[in-house]
Design a protein around this nucleic acid. Structure first.
Lengths: 140, 140
DNA sequence: TGACAATATCTCAAATTCAATATATATTAA
DNA sequence: TTAATATATATTGAATTTGAGATATTGTCA
């Protein structure tokens, strides 16, 4: 009847990520983007043309949600769908010129915010954190 | 056009917690509980009687969601609402006998799963991970 | 070839979430 | 006391997410 969670690393991992999500949701709402929408755009910004499947695997959401978010972003004119000739089941997604311009504006600000979460860690500590998280992820 | 995320600690933190959430959702669905429902029950199990407010602060969700999840759990007969006499705005929530019994069954299994995520970390490493995550959380 | 499994996307209903607002109660200050 | 402000919970409605299943296409292998 005392501590809420007997596993402190677990508790902190989940609460920290939840707090970060909330913070980023607020930030992204300034650009009229949900976190999921931004995640899709981020993948496209760094990786270029991707299939819906590839994006979904990357950001870990269901196929139903992918269709929904891709529709939204297409309506906003930020991305576009392109049929794939080699495999007609597949649809490729790319940023439009407007989408690319938008991300050019957003990303530096976003990077600064994300980096600011980690300023109290030294380079070595960041590296250790990465190692630890990889070990955890492998066990999930 | 190469890496998806320039901040690796951030990427791993978010992906790992997301993967854990997905895993726990699957586990909890065996007990017909959502993650949010379970989180509420966990607070009550370890902390005893709590106000709706207290629970919501602990698990970081909005008041609208709290009302919803409390309704669900009450319908299932797992928890009950009790008006507070000292402050009539307040409602206390407690586990019912069935709820307590249910949690007695679920918790050991849950703890094992959670602990299993961290078996590849030594005690020192877990402690470091905690320190690092606290530093991050303070910056969010 | 033909049957069957696998894959990619979409559809739709149900569940869940948040934001904004409403209601009731409590506290504080004039 | 009264008015103003703060607090705790509930309600509403829109947005989002999942899960199950539908459709179309591709791959496999007897």
């Amino acid at each position: 009847m005392e501590r809420i969670c007997t596993n402190q690393p677990f508790f902190l991992l989940m609460q920290t990520s939840k707090a970060i999500q909330e913070r980023l949701r607020d930030e992204m709402s300034k650009n009229n983007l949900s976190i999921t929408e931004f995640s899709v755009l981020e993948v496209l910004y760094y990786q270029g043309k991707q299939t819906i499947q590839q994006i979904g695997n990357r950001i870990l959401i269901s196929s139903g949600s992918m269709t929904y978010v891709i529709d939204k972003l297409e309506q906003k004119g930020i991305i576009k769908r392109n049929d794939c000739r080699e495999d007609r089941r597949v649809i490729h997604i790319t940023l439009t010129a407007e989408g690319m311009e938008m991300m050019d504006n957003i990303m530096p600000m976003y990077q600064d915010i994300v980096d600011s979460f980690f300023v109290d860690l030294t380079g070595d500590e960041s590296q250790l954190l990465v190692n630890f998280l990889k070990k955890v992820w492998n066990r999930v």
